[in-house]
């Protein structure tokens, strides 16, 4: 069993794990965490795909997936930031509404 396959499988496990928790948990922060883990699984598969092509032990990995993952990481952090901001905003608006309801 090659290293690439091993890490590729690990990526799939991370993805499925993240997917399960993203679907089941109700707490928003955790759901965001789960989606991030899903993303990390995908990136892991891509990095593994780059390593797969390592010929005869030479460190000659494919740089294209590396660039893709770098792009993916930046996109993921942007999306996470937007999601977190929305969670905070929803939380504050809900608190405001509750106060108005009480007072």
């Amino acid at each position: 069993m090659s290293t690439a396959l091993l890490f590729g499988l690990c990526g799939i496990v991370l993805f499925v794990l993240g997917l399960y928790f993203a679907l089941t948990t109700t707490e928003m922060l955790r759901r965001i965490l789960a989606i991030n883990i899903m993303g990390n699984g995908v990136f892991m598969l891509l990095i593994a795909a780059a390593y797969q092509h390592d010929v005869s032990g030479l460190p000659n990995t494919d740089p294209v997936p590396h660039a893709l993952v770098l792009t993916g990481i930046v996109v993921a952090v942007s999306a996470t930031a937007l999601a977190l901001k929305l969670v905070c905003r929803a939380h504050e608006l809900a608190a405001e509404q509750r106060e108005e309801g009480d007072g």
Binding site: S2, L5, G8, Q52, T61, D62, P63, V64
Partner: peptide, 13 residues
Amino acid sequence: ALWSHSETSSSLA
């Protein structure tokens, strides 16, 4: 699916 395809080796490197 991954397993079944682990032999091929092409690359953009």
